[in-house]
Design a binder for these strands. Structure first.
Lengths: 345, 345
DNA sequence: CTGAAAGCGCTTACAG
DNA sequence: CTGAAAGCGCTTACAG
């Protein structure tokens, strides 16, 4: 099968005894072509099972109608939801997606970005890997004339289009809620502080404590507890403290919160009466644990659509004077569930 | 930035005063080129920030080093895991992925496939949408000389490479296990029977009943209960029967099984003592529900890797006489958890 | 080992 | 409205 020769515009032109350029015009629905020939070309194209070679078309036109996406892992709920959103919006505009995963490694992230540059994608959408520190490869994208959009895990210092959550505000609200539920010693599981999102979440936590005149207790702030295992380890450590916390804000992820819940359950500590738990991201499972876990919804599918549409707007406004907002911040929503509700309303 | 002109092999050739063909050879590491010139070219390429235009290269070579993937939804655990597996294996071989989602609609599936054909992908990997009945678009892929690989939800009559699960066997084992746990009236939630996988799972169910000389009770077989909501509806209906079932095999998915569990929980029916529940797919949440749900692991990431590697093998053996197996069946694994264990071992 | 030339399949100014 | 021609950036037989 591989050897089968595909139909080209020349085959159609030859059969109809017209010029290839006319065929091309007819196929791209130009209005500089006679209606009759247009119909004839379309009919013949269908008969010969013609498929436009997008590669050739793109090469000629100097654009690929392709968006490259780089995420840490495709099979993590948050990212797969964002990708689904990007796909939906892109599909409507006739754009394709090339997807790469960085596996949370900057080294692989760099390779992915280079591949996408080679592919001549029109736009690269990226959420940084956790160990991403140097951003030369992102600068490289810009230098190659490719639109760069960062989302969620962004490098703040790079002036690019960005779609982010208001992490600080969400975090502030979550901790405020816990304080209002009467929790006095609220621990923070924080993520790698080289990522801005995790720094912002910490700030939100600190601001909430400040607002309610509560002391900042260093022993209740645990670094780098952003997976289920690390969350569980941190919880063991915290709950064995002379003065253990009465609530834990797993600011890094719901996976971390799940680790907290499991350890509490094993240790026979009751949630939410003895220990409040709040996660981050609204993973599907947070609704079905017992008790259900309070968390923060990031509207991930919507975030994906927003990313794609931001690119399309930017393209349309390229030559206009109107200024498009460069950073879109989506307000996340605190979902109060059982794991933090000990006051009956 | 968009206007920036990229460096081409001609820029390098001009600067070094050699032919473009030599530059091309040097860059593709041909051994028909002097070591000294090769080094010089590489150095200059780096200086000028040269990036090969893959579009042009692929157009000339007549292949794209791209695999197109069509799945119902990117953001469903099973599919995102398969995609992650495909990505990993493809990345190692220098292949890119273009991802589309059919949204379970044959109409969109057809458009996706056509887009991928236009993109001149080398291979299309597909898992059919639920309402896929006619398969002309898949035949079209083959007719266009593109390798077609089906996985999981396959059209049996099409002679293509396939990677599947042994659904019948897995289903048989699951039901046998439930029978051995003493369940007497085991209901089946079945999926749309136009999909082979759901037919196979039904056969496995029936075979298990037959083996243990148990009657087939038509009122316990519920059609089309393959989402959480449909699973819940079916459960309400079943549990209100004069003679309700004492176990439910949600052969369609874990989501369906979750619907069963929630209804049982609302109705105050104890799992597993009064009602046994078994799902399908090993979604992450099945481990953390209370009780945890017995299910079947499909090894989804491995399945993805297998798909990609099958393609690469097929390519390598194209001109050899050796025959590559056309259908790879992965044996799924029954994971026995709390929701079906009422005998203490 | 190197160069000149053709060609992958398309699009688009340029003439008419 | 239509055609002839150039060119997108690369690769690869063909000569030498």
């Amino acid at each position: 099968m591989k050897s089968k020769k595909r139909t080209t515009i020349y085959d159609i032109a030859e059969k109809l005894n017209i010029a290839a350029s006319s065929v091309s015009r007819a196929l791209s629905n130009s209005n500089h072509v006679n209606e009759a020939t247009k119909k004839l070309v379309l009919k013949t194209a269908a008969e010969l099972n013609y498929k436009r070679n997008t590669l050739a078309s793109n090469l000629r036109k100097g654009k690929s109608k392709t968006i490259g996406v780089v995420v840490p892992f495709i099979n993590q709920n948050f990212f797969s939801n964002v990708i689904a959103g990007i796909e939906e919006a892109s599909y409507q505009k006739g754009y394709n997606l090339i997807i790469c995963q960085s596996n949370e490694l900057q080294s692989k992230e760099i390779k992915c970005v280079n591949t996408l540059i080679n592919q001549h994608v029109d736009c690269i959408v990226i959420s940084l890997s956790v160990d991403s520190s140097d951003h030369q490869h992102l600068q490289n994208v810009i230098d190659n004339g490719i639109e760069l959009i960062q989302f969620d895990r962004v490098a703040d210092e790079l002036e690019t289009l960005k779609v982010i959550n208001d992490n600080e505000q969400a975090s502030f609200e979550a901790v405020s809620h816990m304080i209002e539920q009467g929790y006095k010693r609220i621990a923070l599981l924080e993520g790698p502080q080289n990522l801005q999102i995790f720094r912002q979440r910490k700030v939100g936590y600190l601001n909430a404590l400040k607002k309610y005149d509560m002391p900042i207790l260093d022993e209740l702030i645990i670094e780098n507890a952003w997976t289920k295992e690390l969350g569980a380890n941190a919880t063991r450590k915290l709950l064995n403290l002379p003065e253990p916390p009465d609530a834990i804000f797993a600011s890094t992820s719901d996976f971390s919160a799940l680790g907290v819940l499991e350890v509490a359950s094993v240790m026979g500590i009751k949630v939410p009466s003895q220990l409040g738990i709040c996660g981050y991201s609204n993973e599907a499972f947070t609704e079905i644990t017992s008790p259900s876990i309070t968390t923060i919804d990031q509207f991930s599918v919507y975030m994906g659509k927003t990313v794609a549409n931001l690119y399309f707007q930017e393209m349309e406004n390229k030559d206009e004077t109107e200024v498009v907002p460069k950073i879109i911040s989506i307000k996340p929503k605190l979902l109060i569930r059982s794991s933090t509700q000990r006051k009956t309303v």
